[in-house]
Design a protein around this nucleic acid. Sequence first.
DNA 1: CTGAAAGCGCTTACAG
DNA 2: CTGAAAGCGCTTACAG
Lengths: 350, 350
Amino acid sequence: MASVTIYDVAAQAGVSIKTVSRVMNAEPNVRAATREKVTAAAEALGYHPNLSARSLAGSKSFVIAAFVDASLTMDHWRSEQGADYLSRIQLGATGPCRELGYHFLLELIDHDTPRVRQEVGNLLAALKPDGVLLTPPSSDDQTVLDLLRKSHTPFVRLGPERDVGGGLRLKMDDRAAAAKMTEHLIGLGHRRIGFVLGDARYGSSRARQQGYVEAMAAHGLEVQADWIQAGDFTFQSGVEAARRLLSLAARPTAIFASNDDMALGCLSAIADAGLSTPEHISVAGFDDSSSARFSRPQLTTMRQPLVEMADYATRALIQGEVAADCDQDAVGHLPPSELILRKSTAPPAP
Amino acid sequence: MASVTIYDVAAQAGVSIKTVSRVMNAEPNVRAATREKVTAAAEALGYHPNLSARSLAGSKSFVIAAFVDASLTMDHWRSEQGADYLSRIQLGATGPCRELGYHFLLELIDHDTPRVRQEVGNLLAALKPDGVLLTPPSSDDQTVLDLLRKSHTPFVRLGPERDVGGGLRLKMDDRAAAAKMTEHLIGLGHRRIGFVLGDARYGSSRARQQGYVEAMAAHGLEVQADWIQAGDFTFQSGVEAARRLLSLAARPTAIFASNDDMALGCLSAIADAGLSTPEHISVAGFDDSSSARFSRPQLTTMRQPLVEMADYATRALIQGEVAADCDQDAVGHLPPSELILRKSTAPPAP
DNA sequence: CTGAAAGCGCTTACAG
DNA sequence: CTGAAAGCGCTTACAG
């Protein structure tokens, strides 16, 4: 059977298609009696508006798209590791979409290839999404940002590295989160706490260091210069930073690494030195990457409110709160990062 | 700037919009020179066809949708467990979609609620997908199957329980897979191999048992009646079946459970009995659920070719190989299930 | 090999 | 409060 259209409903209800349209879109200026007639006709006929027609005629597509990196995502899916980030974004975005009658479309983008421009240009023109969610590294891809602005598509950048480039930027409060973790260690009784810096090119590295320093100061604890060791977010840099920390005359009783990979490196260096975690030395990470749950010991770490971020972003996009030429930060609306207590932190040995 | 349309390209190339349409769709009957003029104009203008217009005017929507259970999926995403299945489906479906210019849409369905009919009816009418991928339990939901047939939407049922209901059915070869696992155990030197049945209401339970029995017979091994113990796919039923097996006069040296949950139950019962796996007794599971990787010891199990299944199904759908009124099985085209060797199986103690 | 006309199923902008 | 007309950007079916 051919599909039921707005004409069928109009005929059945004895009104014009415009009135049916009004009722279906819950627009005002329809008498209650008319509204009921139309609703009944639509129900009886099993009418559901065609999305393509709505999109083509109107100004909304009822589509929210998320751009994610193709090779990264496929690797995660294939290896069944690291897919947590995306799962949480999907969870956060799907909720508001279903609730508000939108469709959520996950699109894989080939960053760093010549075809990004073609690919993204095509997506934007073909889909005309009402809003786009950008995840790293899309959040900082200049080509993508340009295309988004040129097509006047509202967009939200999740965890952007750079503050330029426009869009609504949703980023965790690294400083507050690092302070919270530092306070956890202090609360456990640690006084000599080492810190492993992240890659200096990232703003989040500095923010995390700042949080550590401020929390220490807030508790009247002096930070010695050699407690802060350079790192670059890799496992190996964590190993090396930990070795330097372990060789200090007054060895720290705890190490706070700016991300989980480096924390895992610390764990490894500590074991190599014949010490154990958390008995001899506590280790804390940052990110709650999936490896953090399966290390030995399991890693105490900080977790971003990703579901809430995606939920907030999607709602803002759907409700038209993100102007196409928007250029601002939004952190205040988000819950703080969560301290995930696991086995790698404990009170210092007496 | 307003978007570039087919009219802009036609004007620039000095042809009619019909010719532009032909070129964009790679249709025949266009002179090479004309084709080039159009391509050049499209390129220069940055033209990308609008999906809604294509879908509305034509017979294809360029959308492939997958239906998954809403609460199940959201639980998996939230808990970050059990999401592997969906990740692999997404991986398998996304590949062909991107390759062939389609969009893959994941839609969450509220099975077992009164709103399924409304929800699915709306999805089908609004999206008019060119094909739908059904995952369990959608694969066996009568309401969904009815709606799909009524709307003449081609669909593939992944891992269906029942063979009635139409569609193209893609199911692993449980019998062959169980035989393969049994042969792995025999190859290790086991002769007394216990088997834990799954829920008898599922066809796969019988098929797995059959595979086990046949493999034993093929190697001249007699199966004693009390080696086969009932179970219902739950952890607890695995515990109980293992207890019965352990109390046998001539205890089996290996247990093959029809799914991972029951295998995990066996592991637990074996440990409770003061025995260890695989030293005293080997345990094999089935499914490669995510828990199988994190148990102690890690579980040897069988893994379905899910990525390949989704890839095959999506291609079949896109290439129009699945008629709307299709009603058939497709197993022959799939690679066999994979034996995942981990730590729970080893040669029997001498 | 190419094109003019009609129409897909809606919303927009306007009139009453 | 309701409706007639136009048009969104394409493909279909047909003509030449």
